[in-house]
Design a protein around this nucleic acid. Structure first.
Length: 110
DNA sequence: GCGGTGACGGTCG
DNA sequence: CCGACCGCCACCG
């Protein structure tokens, strides 16, 4: 997992902590997760951190999509597509295959 | 230790 | 709306 200096919280752990807060049936963008984790402008690191997760992880990585409301993952993850996981949580995709952020975006108070 | 790479995003044309 | 460009920085060979 994430290696960090003694006494410090790893960057990945901070990212995972934010992702774990995303409620079922809602989505957040990579950039949003980065900002909430105290890493403004580092959306790419969020993608990298999620990519490093084990298949059996409890972190709801499927709830993180890009700013256009589209799924960035090209290939399926162990036969389970991100879209399928989100649809099973009640999220509907539009005709273009994108999640209407206006409707499903997570809006945490803080 | 260095450089290419990438589950991104804002900006521009 | 879409594609191209570039800034971002941890990871991996």
């Amino acid at each position: 997992m994430a290696r960090a200096p003694h006494g410090a919280v790893g960057t990945y752990e901070r990212i995972y902590a934010v992702v774990r807060r995303i409620p079922r049936g809602r989505v957040a963008t990579y950039g949003q997760v980065a900002r909430l984790a105290g890493l403004p402008g580092r959306a790419r690191q969020v993608g990298y951190a999620l990519h490093a997760l084990a298949p059996s992880t409890a972190v709801p990585w499927q709830r993180v999509i890009n700013a256009a409301g589209a799924i960035s993952l090209r290939v399926s993850n162990g036969g389970l597509s991100q879209r399928m996981l989100l649809e099973s949580e009640g999220i509907r995709f539009d005709a273009r295959g994108r999640v209407p952020l206006q409707e499903y975006a997570w809006r945490p108070r803080r």
